[in-house]
Design a protein around this nucleic acid. Sequence first.
DNA 1: GATGAATGAGCGTTCATTCAT
DNA 2: CATGAATGAACGCTCATTCAT
Lengths: 211, 211, 211, 211
Amino acid sequence: MAVVESALRADAARNRERIVAAAMEVFAERGLEASTAEIAARAGVGEATLFRRFPTKDDLVTAIVAMQFEEAAALAAECLEDDDPWRGVERFLYGMAERASVDHGVAGAAKEKCVASPSLAGERRRLIDLTSQLVRRAQKADALRDDIAGQDLMFLMSAVASLSDLPFPGLRADLWKRYLGIFLDGLRPEAATKLRPGAPARKLLEAPEVE
Amino acid sequence: MAVVESALRADAARNRERIVAAAMEVFAERGLEASTAEIAARAGVGEATLFRRFPTKDDLVTAIVAMQFEEAAALAAECLEDDDPWRGVERFLYGMAERASVDHGVAGAAKEKCVASPSLAGERRRLIDLTSQLVRRAQKADALRDDIAGQDLMFLMSAVASLSDLPFPGLRADLWKRYLGIFLDGLRPEAATKLRPGAPARKLLEAPEVE
Amino acid sequence: MAVVESALRADAARNRERIVAAAMEVFAERGLEASTAEIAARAGVGEATLFRRFPTKDDLVTAIVAMQFEEAAALAAECLEDDDPWRGVERFLYGMAERASVDHGVAGAAKEKCVASPSLAGERRRLIDLTSQLVRRAQKADALRDDIAGQDLMFLMSAVASLSDLPFPGLRADLWKRYLGIFLDGLRPEAATKLRPGAPARKLLEAPEVE
Amino acid sequence: MAVVESALRADAARNRERIVAAAMEVFAERGLEASTAEIAARAGVGEATLFRRFPTKDDLVTAIVAMQFEEAAALAAECLEDDDPWRGVERFLYGMAERASVDHGVAGAAKEKCVASPSLAGERRRLIDLTSQLVRRAQKADALRDDIAGQDLMFLMSAVASLSDLPFPGLRADLWKRYLGIFLDGLRPEAATKLRPGAPARKLLEAPEVE
DNA sequence: GATGAATGAGCGTTCATTCAT
DNA sequence: CATGAATGAACGCTCATTCAT
């Protein structure tokens, strides 16, 4: 009995994963307004099965965004182990942008979703915790301006994502590297304080508090 | 005769403007997927009237984006007359971000549209021409890094727009000023060349060519 | 005053004719479901003007059909003057089919319309009167089977029209001549009585009474 | 399992048939421009169900025409077994006309469709094959004029259909029998060659080639 | 009288979601 | 549990007809 049950669950779990994978593909290709029918077909399951796992299309999107949050957290953790604290920050934002440049549609979803669902609170907290460590470590090494907070990196993810998704035909696909470069330059301590010797340094608005 | 004719056109033109205004409102509230029915209702006209002026929903969006391009160009022209070349650049990006923070949905549209429609080629060219002047003027005054081109400002509009549109509830509405500040700091000449005396300056990807 | 009035009427009449001509063109190209807007545009008049002359789209179609009835009558009259009574019949049906092969959409309309509108009763009566003469003249010359009536020719117009409008791509445009030929052969007196010496001649259903 | 599966399919198939039946009814009553909504309502299904089976209104029409082609082929096959070769031809055309007199709108559709859709090529070929046999058999028995080809019968179907669809109110419903009689008389061998001893026989345009 | 503008009603079609098997 | 079938509600769009100038 237990064997049968876990067998079923294993099957169900595999379906779940197939659905999520298919959804990421389809969303990336067609944008978020892609139909559930296409996702189910791509996943090789019936449409009703999809709705059994994700009662709402929105739930499916949320699940994907949660996954992305987890991947972001994993990336942050990895970057924390870079010997060079600044390179850790750089690699994190670079990695986020790179993913976004593949994701297209889903990237936008993340922005819409990091808002609403309290269901993502856990992932969000964990991500902010890790980026805070990234930030503080770089600040201690005097490699990152002091007026940056951990949660900034999370918000910047979406700006960086939009940098990665300029749909201008004929533009090189990695143009986002150009704009990310400018952005990274702006994150240096000297950018905040030493740029204009005579002039007063720009005072940033204070960092947002999340939750 | 001319009076009668222009009277008719005036009436039609007023409806046209009401439709565009309503569309901007509704798009800002509900996003681009808002229905033409709601836009027509908000404008106080029949749905068919909307379609008489804009044979396709897409045409309506394009018209709005064209308007935004023109407003952007007007803003750029205005900023060109600022005594301080750098402040001109600053005010331009600040103004674009500010508008985007009201526009919400339409901002995203701009990104989608600046791509596709060749119908916007004229506006695009004019805008790039003006931002190029802004850029060159600031560069001559040694207030802007040399590796920036005029078209960058146009692309940055959309990144800046996304900065303005973080839909996190409870965040202060003008949080975008924080991130724009960082970005502006990254545009300074020192950000490109003098930040890390010992380290090699970051080399940006070359600027994109448009059209 | 009278001058002005008749001037107006002349103008109006010219508009009316332009509308009818445009409608025939457009109906022939696009079928009967072509829009009044296109007809008005083709005629070079405002859409409202069209509706002033023909309060209903249906009225416009009816007017065209009436014209066709008149042209049919004119053709019948002309054929009545052919020296050879049979050739008169032949030319009439040939002429009707030829027109239909140009008319396309309108031909079908005629069929639909010869039904309904009592407004066409006059034209119909006149046409039947002429075709009856055609028929009787040919019968007296023993060139046409006896069991044919004048109104048959009118009904046959529409069958002949459909013969002219086989929309099979790649078929020669004048294929209708083939089928009309067969049909004409069936109208000969021998076709009715002498075909099968041993067998009884086919007895046709009696001719329809109209009005 | 197979039972369950075929049960599901049976239900769906029943709906499909109800839709087709309803469509034939409605098209017959209102013509091809009848709305999908009415068809769905008549079939007792939701409108979306109709579109699940027939993704396009056109697909529905095509399906019906395909059915008619198949029925025509079945009729032709049946007529091939008539002892009297000529009666076989007669019964075929009579049967086609009879059906058309019920079909009304759909008959016209057939004409429009036998053109375009390559999807009907198979049915068309099969039908032409059968009518060719009908024709040849009758010609061998010297019961049908020699200058007729198998594909003629297919084209004649539509002419015959229009004969069946004279929408004149007050006319007897089976008036088409009258005109079909004339037509059949024209198909006899004597109609082609022996009608006018002194005069040259009419030379028909050559038969069309299909496909 | 002539016109461009306006519109209500309708159309074909789509889709997230529920139901029956 | 998994599925194909079903569907209501909505959408973008068209058009014959009326209205205001």
